[in-house]
Design a protein around this nucleic acid. Structure first.
Length: 273
DNA sequence: GAGGATCGAAGGGGACACGC
DNA sequence: GCGTGTCCCCTTCGATCCTC
């Protein structure tokens, strides 16, 4: 295992890294944490068989770990079925330095289970969007994760407010762009909190700021883990008098494909010039 | 209900071939 | 020599079934 690399060593390794190596590091920087399974789905999907891709991925991750560009975190997130506990990876000290050119770099930390679960759920949504795009001849033209997706605006009272989507995405085909703000709900917050977030979306929509840049306001997709939770949120939105009824779509995680490919646009799809 | 047996999915390692 | 692709086999571990 290597220790922290010096500048010359960093340059040497940067030149030796393949495009895919750097893409894996970039994905880890973007999402902070990814399971091995998500890395396979993002970067090793073109192999003859799924196990071949998994094996190739495993070797690449081991190599990157030896160079201290990535690290395995101790905590594992369980899935369904035996052996499905997936290893969770994050950038290590040399990975940060390679990508950011900074002098110090930083080592990874062991996150709380709640934080990790939410971060991985957001990553899972992004990976799923990539797969939907591949399957439907679409392009995930633009994607912003958490902080990069946040929007600052001035509220009606003149106060500075932040809209904080978990993910902002643009799916494109030859003619149209579909814009989405996506919120990942793991059932850890109250319905009141969720409706509060919806109200922030409504306030932001009324500023016209997003429409001025892209002509349309993105549809807001709430992804929930259970049908019960989806129904509760849907009912709460329907009973609200202050929220635009067609602005919000609520669905379970496993419905995202149908929602993304079938959903009619809010104000008409944005046609590119 | 508790504990053991079995099943199945996924991870991991060895080996070989191939290309650069 | 090194990285990569593939196949094969073993191990691990949660879910499920079965027996008591």
């Amino acid at each position: 295992m290597l220790n922290r690399l010096g500048h010359r060593q960093l340059d040497h390794f940067r030149m030796r890294f393949s495009t895919r190596d750097l893409a894996i590091l970039a994905s880890l920087r973007e999402h902070r944490f990814l399971t091995a399974q998500q890395i396979i789905r993002l970067h090793f999907y073109g192999h003859a068989t799924q196990p071949a891709g998994a094996r190739a991925c495993s070797r690449v991750l081991e190599r990157l770990q030896r160079l201290r560009t990535i690290a395995r975190i101790q905590r594992r997130i369980g899935g369904t079925g035996g052996g499905s506990t997936s290893q969770v990876w994050t950038l290590d000290i040399n990975g940060h330095r390679l990508l950011t050119q900074n002098k110090t770099g930083r080592s990874h930390f062991d996150p709380s289970l709640t934080f990790l679960a939410h971060t991985l759920a957001v990553a899972e949504t992004r990976v799923t969007l990539e797969e939907i795009a591949r399957r439907n001849s679409l392009r995930l033209a633009h994607v912003e994760i958490e902080q990069t997706a946040w929007r600052q605006f001035i509220g009606t009272g003149g106060q500075s407010l932040w809209l904080k989507p978990d993910l902002a995405a643009v799916l494109s085909d030859d003619e149209f762009d579909d814009r989405w703000f996506i919120e990942v709900d793991l059932g850890t917050e109250s319905l009141k909190t969720l409706l509060g977030k919806c109200a922030v979306y409504e306030s932001y929509r009324k500023t016209g700021k997003e429409q001025a840049s892209h002509e349309v306001f993105p549809r807001v997709l709430w992804l929930t883990t259970t049908q019960r939770r989806a129904d509760q949120l849907r009912n709460a939105l329907a009973n609200s008098r202050s929220l635009h009824p067609r602005l919000f779509t609520v669905a379970r995680f496993d419905e995202i494909g149908a929602i993304i490919t079938d959903q009619p646009p809010l104000n008409g799809k944005e046609e590119r010039a």
